[in-house]
C-alpha cells in the first residue's frame, strides 16, 4: 500500500466522516433533550437528497405530501387539545404553523419544480420542505409520550422510522437518484485530486458545528436546550417548557439531516432507505464518543469514516461488520470504566 493510497483513503474517510459527524451531533442533541434515540434521523437525509434530485429533474418531490399530510395530523392533534382546554385563541397559531406553512412550502415547490431554478434556490426549497418535518414529527410521534421511558421512546423512533421509510418508497420509488454536483471543479494537491464537492462537505460541517456552538453558548434558546439536556426537571422548574425544547431539538435535527442530504446527494446514489445506514454510522460515531460529548462524538464519527474507508480497501466484504463491530469493545470498555447512573428521573 503506497503513500498515495493512504492519502486517498484518508481524504475519502474524512469526507464521509464529516457527514457522519453532523449526524452524530444531531443524534446526540435529540438524545440529550428528549432521551429518544432518534432513528428517523436518516430519513431526513434521504428525503432531502431525493427532493433535491427530483427538483433538479423538474419534478415535484413527494416530500410535499408527507409535509402537508403530517402537518394536518399535527394540527388536528393540537386543535383537539385547544378545544378541550377551551382556548380557541390558540387556533390561528396552530393553523399558521401546521397548515399554512406546509401548504405555502408545497405551493412554492410546485411552482418552482418545472422551472428548474438556480441550484441554491432549490436547496433552500428543500430545506423549506424537510426542516418543518422535524417539529411535525415531534408533535405527532414524540410529544404525546414525551415522559415515557427511554425504551418506549426508542420504540416510537423505530415506528416513525418505518412509517417515513415506507412513505419514502411510495413517493420516491425503489430506484436511487443522484443530484448534480454544486461544482464540478477539482483541485490538484500533490497526488490528490480533490473535488470541490468534498471540500464543500467538510467546510459545511465545520460551519454548522461552529454555529451550533454559538447557538448553544450565546442564544437564549440554545441555553434552554442545554438546560433541558442537563436536568429536565430543573429546566421545567425555571420555566423552560419541555415541549418547546423537544420541538426545537427535532427542528435542528431535521435541519442537520437536510444539510447532510443535500451535501451527500451529488457524491453517491441515494435510495429511499439509504439514510438509515448513514444515520446508523453517525450513531456509531456518537457511541464511540461516549454518547455525551459533542466534540468526542464528532471525532468518533470521523473515526468511523476513516475506519470504513480503510476497511473497504483491505477487506471490502467485511466492511460493515468491521464498522459495526467496533461498538462492542467500546461499550465493554465504557461499561468497565464509567459508573452507570440511573437517570430515569421523577
Amino acid at each position: 500500500m503506497s503513500f498515495d493510497i493512504v492519502l486517498w483513503l484518508v481524504q475519502d474517510g474524512i469526507v464521509n466522516g464529516a457527514i457522519y459527524a453532523l449526524l452524530a451531533l444531531a443524534l446526540l442533541l435529540v438524545f440529550a433533550v428528549t432521551r429518544a434515540i432518534f432513528v428517523p434521523q436518516g430519513e431526513f437525509i434521504s428525503y432531502a437528497a431525493l427532493s433535491l434530485a427530483l427538483l433538479q429533474a423538474g419534478k415535484l418531490p413527494g416530500t410535499v405530501y408527507v409535509l402537508v399530510g403530517g402537518g394536518a395530523i399535527a394540527a388536528l392533534l393540537d386543535i383537539a387539545v385547544a378545544l378541550r382546554d377551551k382556548a380557541p385563541g390558540r387556533l390561528p397559531r396552530i393553523l399558521a404553523v401546521y397548515v399554512l406553512l406546509p401548504l405555502a412550502m408545497a405551493g412554492i415547490a410546485w411552482w418552482a419544480a418545472p422551472r428548474k431554478l438556480d441550484m441554491w434556490i432549490q436547496v433552500l426549497i428543500v430545506f423549506g420542505l424537510v426542516v418543518p418535518l422535524g417539529p411535525i414529527l415531534y408533535r405527532v410521534a414524540y410529544r404525546p409520550l414525551a415522559g415515557a421511558s427511554v425504551l418506549v421512546l426508542f420504540i416510537i423512533s423505530m415506528a416513525a422510522h418505518y412509517v417515513l421509510t415506507g412513505l419514502g418508497l411510495v413517493f420516491f420509488g425503489g430506484e436511487g437518484l443522484r443530484s448534480q454536483a454544486f461544482s464540478g471543479a477539482h483541485f490538484k494537491i500533490g497526488v490528490l485530486n480533490i473535488s470541490a464537492q468534498s471540500v464543500l462537505v467538510v467546510l459545511a460541517t465545520v460551519l454548522i458545528m461552529a454555529s451550533l456552538w454559538l447557538f448553544f453558548e450565546h442564544s437564549i434558546y440554545g441555553k434552554a436546550l442545554r438546560a433541558t439536556a442537563i436536568n429536565r426537571v430543573g429546566a421545567r422548574l425555571v420555566g423552560i417548557p419541555a415541549e418547546l425544547s423537544g420541538s426545537l431539538a427535532l427542528t435542528l435535527a431535521a435541519f442537520i439531516g437536510a444539510v447532510s442530504g443535500v451535501l451527500i446527494a451529488p457524491i453517491t446514489t441515494i435510495y429511499y432507505d439509504t439514510g438509515f445506514l448513514i444515520g446508523l454510522k453517525g450513531f456509531v460515531g456518537a457511541i464511540l464518543g461516549g454518547m455525551g460529548s459533542y466534540p468526542l462524538a464528532a471525532i468518533g464519527a470521523v473515526g468511523v469514516g476513516l475506519l470504513e474507508s480503510f476497511s473497504s480497501f483491505w477487506a471490502s466484504a467485511f466492511k460493515e461488520s468491521i464498522v459495526f463491530t467496533i461498538i462492542i469493545p467500546v461499550l465493554v470498555w465504557r461499561s468497565l470504566t464509567t459508573r452507570h447512573v440511573e437517570d430515569e428521573e421523577e
Partner: peptide, 21 residues
C-alpha cells in the same frame, strides 16, 4: 480482485483504489 460493496454505501473509494492498484 474480488471487492465488495453495499447498495447503500456512500463511497467505494477504497475498493476502487485497490482495483486501480
Amino acid at each position: 480482485t474480488n471487492e465488495r460493496y453495499a447498495r447503500a454505501d456512500t463511497s467505494v473509494t477504497g475498493q476502487v483504489l485497490k482495483i486501480m492498484a
